[in-house]
Design a protein around this nucleic acid. Sequence first.
DNA 1: CGGGAATAGTTGACACATCATCCACGTTCG
DNA 2: CGAACGTGGATGATGTGTCAACTATTCCCG
Lengths: 188, 188
Amino acid sequence: MMCQLFPYAEPVTRWLEPEQQQAWRAYVRMQGELNAHLSRQMSVDSDISMADFAVLVQLTDTREERVRVLELARSLHWEKSRISHHVARMEKRGLVRRESCGSDGRGSFVVLTDQGRSAIEAAAPAHAEMVHKLVFDQLTASEVTALQAISEKILTRLTTGECAAVVARCDADDAMEVVPQESGCSEA
Amino acid sequence: MMCQLFPYAEPVTRWLEPEQQQAWRAYVRMQGELNAHLSRQMSVDSDISMADFAVLVQLTDTREERVRVLELARSLHWEKSRISHHVARMEKRGLVRRESCGSDGRGSFVVLTDQGRSAIEAAAPAHAEMVHKLVFDQLTASEVTALQAISEKILTRLTTGECAAVVARCDADDAMEVVPQESGCSEA
DNA sequence: CGGGAATAGTTGACACATCATCCACGTTCG
DNA sequence: CGAACGTGGATGATGTGTCAACTATTCCCG
């Protein structure tokens, strides 16, 4: 009853088709186990986590080997508080060091230490090898292409329109409605 | 020097080819952001996490709506301690309930509560819709097929040979080799 | 029957991510 | 100049995942 009267109240959920189900389950499991395996492998034989690795990569990618905290946050797509906590832990272990920023009293740099450099140099080869073995050795060239295309399509959807707006509505406490502004947010 | 004398000492790291780099970076970011988005969406509009959801799905998939803890662990591919902690938290929120197992004094069941059932029924449609919007609406039929093929190939590699052995070597301290027993576990 | 070993599950310590809050500094504009 | 507001970053509480013990039961075998 009241089916056609309130079409908006009964959107008739779009469940997944069987082929979609299969693909989705396979993807979800693969992604979970791949993450788990890469993480564990890295922490077992290099004593750093994937998160540490990501931070160290950003640091070594820069000449000067020092990066502002917020730039780290942006390039890793992490929240600033996550960066802050993580850098604190890494500092405690001697992988990085903080330096205050002269030109902007609020800011601070994250600086790579020698220990941090040797840590990433030790970890990188095994990690690359593992990615080869687990992923690229299993795939044909066209599958690699497809993987990239698929990832980019989904990524585009994720960083466009409503989705991006949800992410961006961070600390607007008294904004009664979220204006899905599609530009002018991040590249200040 | 000493290049060919000690070939094993200098394995000449296999770094990623440019196309591989691109595909890998795209995949890693997509996977991270997709996870984040799905998790946040679910906890925002249904007040349960993806982990809760996964547990509840397992419970509703069974007639009786009660499952042994270890069976849960196996079907979700989680560690038993993770299950234990998580079930404890879910119990505290009223989503599930524990019941002791008569036939095996060590075991216990996890049972779906009414509140748990309504929680998953409330969460499922929005989740399915989100997966559609973010993933399948973006992909062609052949990309869906490719995604499944890719996932299954990688998954096969992960659950075969050395990788599986690493996972399985849990508390077998003195077991020199791991026998990958494939049945006879769950139906007591 | 008795004494290991395996099994089912819990627990505590720790690493990590997220959220809300806070503070210090900078910018803008009256 | 100085109040208001935005920004860079730190902090504490809480929920979650992992690892390493630990308990209690059951199984196996002599």
